[in-house]
Structure formats: structure tokens, C-alpha cells
Amino acid sequence: MTQTSDKLIIGGREFTSRLMVGNGKYASFEQTAQALEMSGAEIITVAVRRVNLDRSKESLLDYIDLKKYTLLPNTAGCYTADDAVRTCRLAREAGMSDFVKLEVLGDEKTLFPDNEELLKAAKILVAEGFTVLPYCSDDVIVCKKLEDLGCAAVMPLGAPIGSGLGIRNPYNIRIILENVSVPVIVDAGVGSASDAAIAMELGCAGVLMNTAIAGAQDPIAMAEAMKLAVIAGRLSFKAGRIPRKLYANASSPLDGLIN
């Protein structure tokens, strides 16, 4: 299997990379652009915010080649369905694309999703023609409801946003994978390359992260590590791992041993 024969399809669009990255928390726009390049990501998240009326300040979009990336505007900071829908409408107008990462947060301390508001917003946005990628709890019931509403993917969290705790409940992710047919993308919680590989080995369609790269001591090196981990994890999943056994099973033949 090669990467070219294993495309990720979301909302009718084909992607080669299964790593999606955010653009927040970097030291500079130059560093953001370099990390993006190194990650190989094709889908990158952005936030929708008021323009800076001081035009002397630069914009991230001046630093990145917009032809190379699909922008995935998020609704970060929204705590109600109404705010999230309003933000998505603005994003579509600004970006001329229907792709949105829908997040409706429950509280500031956990940044866990408010699934009730999330479902409400998803229903409205799907009806308005958006390609909705919702950040949600690692809960198969919520994921199935989001799929039934017409979301293009589901994006359960691995752990709290920015926590770097890794995939805290791989069994929940497995249950989601077995019960929904849209792409399952782990969004949030990844801390290191092995976490990303674990998500992919579980069979996830992709991984979305920001802090794990931006907050690393060397974000550009970590971007490369994540790129390779996602590729390795995907290949490992497709290759089919050996069953776990309690006792040893020698790799060298026993025949012909000298004695």
C-alpha cells in the first residue's frame, strides 16, 4: 500500500495527508508557516476573529500559501449553538468554503463539548449546506447522532484540548469506529508522536492537533515527527498487527540448533 492509494475523503474532497493541524500558539508567523510545511498537512484550522484595526500588524494568511491548504475555520470560543452558527456563516463569507470545524464548548476549564448545543448547531449548519466536522466527546451515541444529522466526519477528543494526555480512552474510540461510517478524526489531546500513531493504529481516518506541535520545544521537528507518526500509524493499521500473546514465541528456528 502506498500513500497515493489511500486517500482521505471528506465532504467529497480528497486528501493525501491524514494529519490536520492548527495554527495557534506559535512564536511567530514564520514558525507557523515552517511547521505547516514540515507537517505535510493539507487541512489547517483557523479561528474567526475581529480584524485588527491597527493595519501595521501582519496577518497569518500573508505567510502561508493558500493554494496549498484547505482552510478549516473553527468556532473556538463559542459556548452556544447560536454563536457557533453565526461564526460559521461569517467564516463561509470570508473564506468562500463550506468546511467548518464545529465546536461548542461547555466550560472554560475543561473545554469539553456541550453536546446538546453541538447537535443543535450541526443540524442548522448541515441544512445550510455546510460541510460540518464536529469536535465532540468520545461518545458513540453523540457521534452517531452527528452522523445521522449529516456531518461529514466526527472528531472525538482524545483528551482535553491542549492537555497532551494522549488517547485516554482507546476503547471508546474503537466503539465509535465500529459504529459510524463517516471518517473518525481524533481532535485534541495528542501530546507526542506515539499518541498520534496510536490514534491511527486504532483505525482513525486522521488526527487533528495544534498544541502538541506549536508547544513543543522545537515545533518544526515535532511537525515532522507527527507527519511520520500518522503515516506509520496508518500503515501499521492497514498492515494488521499480530495478536497479543502472554508468552514468548521464538523468532529464530529451533531446527539445526548446535548442541
Binding site: 500558539k25 508567523f29 507557523t32 473553527n74
Partner: peptide
Amino acid sequence: IVHFVGGG
């Protein structure tokens, strides 16, 4: 008036 900024 809004635009896109870096975000996760």
C-alpha cells in the same frame, strides 16, 4: 469585520 487568525 472579521477575518481568519491562527487557531486550533
